[in-house]
Amino acid sequence: MTAVTGQAAAAAPELIHHALVYGSDEAFLSATTGFCRDGLAGGDRVLAVTTPANIGLLEDALGPAAAGVEFVAADDWYGAPGRTLAAYGRYVDAHKVRHRRVRIIGEPVWHGRSPAEEAEWTRYESVINAAFAGSPAWIVCPYDERTLPERIVADARRTHPKLLTGSAEHDSHAYTDPAAFAHASDHLPLPPPAGAGEEIRFDADLGRMRQRVAARAAALGLSAGQIDRLLLAVNEVAANAVQHGGGHGRILLWADAAGIGCDVADPGRLSTPFPGYLPPDPLADRGHGLWVVRQLCELLEIRTGRNGTQVRLHLARG
């Protein structure tokens, strides 16, 4: 893993990850307008993912230069942490070929998130530092302190190595290395699911496990396509448990308002750093499974420690 320096090295540029904590439209614009203008002037690719209001502000401030910036509404972009991270990865990969640097304004969506979603999107901000290490991306993440709860703004200071004010950057003293980052809720057990049926125990016979999970999923009214997606995801997690974990485990499956929830628990400990978050090398011998699981799921929660590992998958109904 390459260290994040933030220094504009002479050779290939490395990841810069800024939080922009702003309390006014002027503060938002004073940082983002120059960021876009400098990027366009230097031949960088510029993507701005933010609220419709901020898109309007920035377009007005940039004037004709706005035509050079790609704007995307944040609600359309921040769907699921794993998929959003993959989308940024594809974007950077696509444009780094012809641009020295890819500049991104990325304002995550926090309103309307459940506590679990808020925790995982916070972790996502931290993981960005590892997933894009060595990548020529400069990501500025705006946080609107007029409307965001203090805990989210405080976490932004822990997940971003640098803070941006106007055109000035300074170190974030609260920054926590992503490998050591823990969300406040990580020390609490995951809330017990409501309405989960009888648990399905599994061992190395994953075919039998899939049969039983499929039967339970069908009883919950999932379509054939949803069952296939669930089986693919659950099989990867269970295979990890069999191969690297405790060798056996338990599965719970339930339906809730958001979709389908599924817990896979095993007595082993998950030692993989950033499980499923780092874009896999297609040519690698392993390490693609959890990446795929994150792409298939709306949300993935993981608790691991001395008492074993619990992986909670949330899949959309649709």
Binding site: P280, V292, L296
Partner: peptide, 15 residues
């Protein structure tokens, strides 16, 4: 199956 084609794309194996 189209869903598996999607998985292949997710990992970048389509290239």
């Amino acid at each position: 199956a189209p869903a598996l084609d999607k998985v292949i794309r997710m990992v970048g194996w389509d290239r």
